[in-house]
């Protein structure tokens, strides 16, 4: 469990999120476009992180459903920025899987006309760090 606490602290550090600020109002989830596809909702990410339950987050589908549109970050009245938290957890998962992510050429082939503009923008934004 101890490695958990370190990873959680790293996640908090990367995302710059202080989960204690959340007043559990649920506005981030209400504003979330991908609400229906997500198993664990954005506001739950904040409370899971606070409780230290990292495993279920790492296995949740939401990591890949999140569009990264940051509506939740925009709307949160307490400036908690849950979207960044989801990104951070996804980064942790990718890092643990080692480097077998896609190379740039493979990505270029995938890009076709139907790929929504927003997805590209959020993909690039997310990997900015």
């Amino acid at each position: 469990m101890s490695s958990n606490i370190e990873t959680i602290n790293i996640i908090k550090e990367i995302s710059g999120v202080n989960p204690l600020r959340c007043m559990k109002c649920g506005k981030c989830t209400a504003s979330c476009m991908a609400y229906d596809e997500m198993d664990i909702k954005p506001h739950q990410f904040v409370s899971y992180i606070e409780r230290g339950d990292l495993e279920s987050l790492m296995l949740s589908e939401s990591l890949y459903k999140c569009l990264g549109c940051f509506a939740c970050v925009e709307r949160c009245p307490r400036n908690v920025q849950p979207g960044k938290l989801i990104d951070a957890v996804r980064q942790t998962v990718i890092r643990q899987r080692g480097a077998e992510g896609m190379t740039t050429e493979e990505i270029r082939q995938l890009i076709t006309q139907e790929v929504p503009q927003q997805l590209l923008v959020s993909a690039f934004r997310r990997n900015r760090r």
């Binding site: 649920g26 506005k27 229906d36 909702k41």
Partner: peptide
Amino acid sequence: VVGSDIIDARHV
């Protein structure tokens, strides 16, 4: 009105 019910985790 698009909202969320965090008790039932329901998209309202």
